[in-house]
Computed example of a mutant assay.
Amino acid sequence: MDTDTPHPFVGMWVTADGHIRQELRPDGRYDEARGARKSAYTGSYTVTGNHIDYVDDTGFTATGDVRDGVLYHEHLVLYREDGTPRAADAR
C-alpha cells in the first residue's frame, strides 16, 4: 500500500453505538477496539476496489465491503467517525 497517498478508506470507522472502533491505517494495518478493550484485534488489510480482506495477527481472516460510505465488515456495520462519507466511498 502506498503510504504517500493514503487510500480513501483509511481512518476511523465506528459502529452506530460507538462500541466497536476500527482504525484502518495508511500502512496497511488495522487496530480494532471493543468497548474499553483497546487493540482487541490487530492485523493487516488489503483493499481491492471496495472490498477489504483482513488478516488478524493470530491468523484469523475476515472480509468487508464499503458501499455508499458504509463499511460492512462481516456482521458489523461501521460508519466514518465523523459521519461524513468521502466521495471515493460511493464508487
Rank of each mutant, 00 (worst) to 15 (best):
A16S: 12
K38V: 11
Y41Q: 15
F60H: 12
G49I: 02
T48F: 01
R80K: 11
T63V: 12
F60Q: 12
A33H: 03
G18V: 11
E23F: 09
R80G: 13
A36W: 11
L24I: 08
R21C: 14
D31I: 11
P26H: 07
Y72S: 04
R67D: 04
G35R: 02
S39D: 15
F60L: 14
V66E: 09
G35T: 01
P6V: 05
D31G: 07
R25D: 00
R86Q: 12
T5L: 10
D68C: 12
Y41T: 14
Q22W: 11
H7D: 06
D4A: 11
V14S: 04
A87K: 03
V14Q: 13
Y72A: 07
R67I: 14
A16G: 05
L76P: 03
W13L: 05
G49C: 03
T84V: 10
T46K: 02
T3E: 13
T63S: 05
D56I: 01
Y45R: 00
P26A: 06
T61G: 07
P85K: 02
G28V: 11
D53S: 02
D31F: 04
Y30C: 07
T58W: 13
G64M: 06
D57W: 05
D31K: 13
G49A: 01
G35D: 03
T3I: 13
M1L: 09
T5N: 08
I52D: 01
Y30Q: 06
V10D: 00
G11C: 13
A33L: 06
V14K: 06
Y72K: 09
P6F: 06
A33M: 10
A33T: 10
V14G: 08
D65Y: 10
L24W: 09
A33K: 10
V70P: 03
Y54H: 10
D65K: 15
V14L: 14
S39N: 07
Y79F: 15
D65E: 14
V66M: 15
H75M: 14
E81H: 11
M12P: 02
A87F: 01
E32W: 01
R86E: 13
G64P: 03
D2Y: 08
Q22N: 13
V10L: 01
T5W: 10
R21H: 14
D57C: 02
G11Q: 08
Y30K: 08
T48S: 04
G35N: 09
D4E: 08
H73E: 06
S44I: 15
V14W: 07
T61M: 08
D31E: 07
T48A: 00
R86M: 12
S44Y: 06
H7I: 07
A88V: 01
H73L: 12
G59R: 07
E23N: 11
A36D: 08
A36Q: 13
L78F: 04
V10Q: 05
Y30G: 02
A16H: 09
V77N: 07
H75P: 12
A40G: 14
V66Y: 06
L24A: 09
G28K: 10
A40N: 11
T48Y: 00
G64L: 04
G11E: 05
D4C: 08
T5H: 03
V66H: 05
